[in-house]
Design a protein around this nucleic acid. Structure first.
Lengths: 246, 246
DNA sequence: GCCGGGATATACTCATACTTATTATCCGAC
DNA sequence: GTCGGATAATAAGTATGAGTATATCCCGGC
């Protein structure tokens, strides 16, 4: 049993030159794991097997496994081998894990969960930002808003301004955890949006809603900022979910 | 310069036998980084230097670095070396990073940030749980409550029941992100609490407040559950911050 | 002063040998 | 027949040395 019929192993994707070999291996395995190709509890073939089957050194493979273990996806023990851990132990909010999840076709549940989390975090962040933003941060956000108006979201410069707006708002919260979490989620949402938007026209102009949010933050009106941010996210969610085949 | 006077390097802590050598190295370096012993931008000594100075193999060191890089703490490139990244890029909500942060004496800011995040996440989680909990989950929570009453929080069994209560409540949200985030934060808070509680008596009995939360969840009353959870956290925060030298 | 190309330091990859931890198996005692 | 402890087999863990690739720095030419 288990002769040579496992030649279905695909070669390692070395297309991303910024990743080293171990990074590429980690990425490939990571995607395979989060997309369920290897079920939880599955034990990977031994280091030597994997290495010679893929024509790589044990060193590179082991470093890849260390990366995955650091993100909670696998667990290795002598004699027992390296096995896929239960999904409840995965660090699903790790930027890489999130990226791998949204690399393939993410499940609808994953998208829903992510937006639900966004609706928890970001309105609260907006409220904090309204209370704490400095004058300089306000000026930055104002400038970003002008740029968005000038270029629109169809233009990369406009998209950059949009990101700058939200990024500055997050920084204004002053809470490192909130900043880390929200920026990670935003990045993931961006992949999804990019992916989904291939199939249809641009949604409605989000600029007026941004202005409302900006005004609330400028006024130091926390509840209004919270509400405005919530509205913004709900619109984004609607844009993603509804008009798939319009 | 940089002769032999760097003999101040402490030996690697191998006390935790569940960690392998590479894990111990990662932990030591990780703590040194998050506690600011190595400032951002600092370039670590080369692999060969570090390895022979600490009498370990390059293999073990490199695997440790892969772990740290996976958590965003360092970044290594040929010729440039391995350097500490800017704190804004650290995965501070990674369970290990959080543990390392709270291993030493965490800054007051770190504690404040964490509780602020808790006050965002957990009340929202309670609200979701109130809407979605199954009968089985409700029964589990009720049983945990009885156990808490029977043993009190002074007893390990009572503490376990407390954790079971909160863990079940989280699972009831059904949101993987919320579950991962909240359980990570809870673990970190637990370290802090244990640490701080060495110096003083037990705080007030939290059982009545838990009952209020439970009733709200049982009734499917989201807003009430949110309020009850918020109250619970505020009490915990007060217990930690106020009576330091009573 | 700017640009390009080569020297250099450092991480990256590979190959191999050896060690250690853990589990499974086997055997004997009860 | 079951329990428990010695034993063996297996896979990860660690060590070492050699060679490759690549970013950075520096210098020389334009």
């Amino acid at each position: 049993m288990a002769q040579k019929n496992e030649q279905d192993e695909k070669a390692i994707d070395r297309s991303d030159k910024s990743l080293r070999l171990h990074g590429s291996i980690a990425r490939d395995l990571g995607i395979a794991i989060v997309t369920g190709k290897y079920p939880p509890g599955h034990v990977l073939t031994s280091e030597v097997d994997f290495a010679e089957r893929h024509q790589i050194s044990r060193t590179a493979y082991r470093e890849a496994i260390r990366i995955l273990a650091a993100k909670g996806l696998v667990e290795s023990r002598p004699k027992a081998g390296t096995k896929i851990t239960d999904p409840s132990r995965w660090h699903i909010l790790d930027p890489d894990v999130l990226a791998w999840t949204f690399e393939g076709e993410p499940s609808q549940k994953a998208i829903d969960d992510l937006f639900e989390l966004r609706l928890i975090i970001e309105p609260a962040a907006a409220e904090l930002a309204a209370k704490r933003r400095t004058g300089a941060q306000l000026a930055q956000m104002g400038h970003a808003l002008e740029e968005m108006a000038k270029y629109t979201l169809a233009n990369p410069l406009g998209q950059a301004a949009d990101q700058a707006f939200h990024s500055t708002l997050l920084n204004a919260t002053g809470n490192m955890g909130v900043i880390a979490l929200a920026s990670t989620i935003s990045a993931a949402v961006r992949w999804t949006t990019i992916y989904k938007q291939r199939t249809r026209k641009l949604p409605r102009d989000p600029l007026p809603d941004h202005r409302v949010l900006f005004e609330a933050v400028a006024d130091g009106n926390g509840p209004a900022a919270r509400a405005a941010m919530q509205h913004l996210i709900e619109l984004a969610l609607a844009d993603i979910n509804l008009p798939e085949k319009a």
